[in-house]
Amino acid sequence: MNCETCQLKELELELTEIRDVLRCILHTIFFHRTLSLVRPKDVDCDFLDITYVQCGLPELEKEVDEKIDQFSAWVEKHPNRRSQICLSFFDEKHRHPGWFVNKTERIYWEQWFINLQVMFPKRYSKSNSSKGLTNIQANAVEETSTRRAALEASINEVLFQIIKFANEKKDHIPAIPDRIFNHEIMIPSSDSVFGWNTDVIRRVLNSGHPYSL
C-alpha cells in the first residue's frame, strides 16, 4: 500500500485566526476520509465568512481542539516562523518477530501537510494628532478587511484542493470500518530544530514509505 501525500497551499494568518483555519481544514479532511455513517453538522467560522462541515463526532472535535491549543502555544513561543501540521491516516498490523515478541506496526496510507505562517500584527506608533490616529485606525481596519478577504479566498482554494485530492486518490483507502480511520495529528514540538518531532521522523522512516517535505 502506497502512502499518498498532499501538500496544501501555505496560508498566512494571524494568531486569532489559527483556530478557525485549522478547524476548517482538519474537519474538511476528516469529513472526506470518514466513510462510515456520519451526522454532518454545518459550522460557521468565528472570524471568517466560511462554513465547513463536521462529522458530528464530539470526540473528534475535542481531539482537534486540543491539538489546535497545543499548536497555538507552540506558535506563541516561536513567532513569525513557518510551521507545518501533519494529519496522518494509518493502519495497524501486528507482527511476531519472535516467539515471545509482539510488535504493532503502523502502516501510513495517507498524509496531509498543512502549511501555515503565523504573522503577528504590526503595532502602529501613537500619534499626537487625532486626525492621524483616526486615519491610522481606518487604514488598519481597511487593511484587516482586505487581508481577511484574501485569506478567505486562499482558504477556499485549500478546501477545493482537499476536495480534488480526496476524489482523485481513492484506491489506497482500506476497507470501510464501522468507525473513523486510525489517524494522528502531529504538530511541531519545542525540542525540534526543524519544526518536527524526531519521533515522527523515526516512525515515518521505519514505515519504509517516502517522506516528502
Binding site: T28, H32, L159, I163
Partner: peptide
C-alpha cells in the same frame, strides 16, 4: 461528501 462540502464553499 465532496458535493456536500462544495455546496457550502
Amino acid at each position: 461528501r465532496s458535493l456536500y462540502a462544495a455546496l457550502r464553499f
